[in-house]
């Protein structure tokens, strides 16, 4: 039985998914903070939010890279 492979898959899934979700959720939170009325530096928060979304996008692109066999060879 391939128990080790099963564990690896489970672990990789957990790490990948929680990374993406954490980044995106932080982005969402920062957007919400930037939109607050009495926010001293909305610009900074907003750019941080975009940074989070950008990292998230990079993670998705990495996923694409994995899917397409043309790249992985």
């Amino acid at each position: 039985m391939k128990w080790l492979e099963l564990l690896t898959v489970a672990g990789a899934t957990l790490i990948a998914a929680s990374t993406v979700v954490t980044l995106y959720a932080l982005g969402v939170r920062l957007t919400a903070i930037a939109a607050d009325a009495q926010q001293p530096s909305p610009g900074l928060k907003r750019s941080l939010a975009y940074l989070c979304f950008g990292l998230c996008g990079a993670a998705v692109l990495f996923g694409l890279y994995l899917i397409i066999p043309y790249f992985s060879k």
Partner: peptide
């Protein structure tokens, strides 16, 4: 996200 990661992970790690 979980679906995508699970599919990618499984198809690349052989289970």
């Amino acid at each position: 996200t979980s679906t995508a990661s699970a599919i990618l992970a499984s198809s690349h790690l052989g289970f």
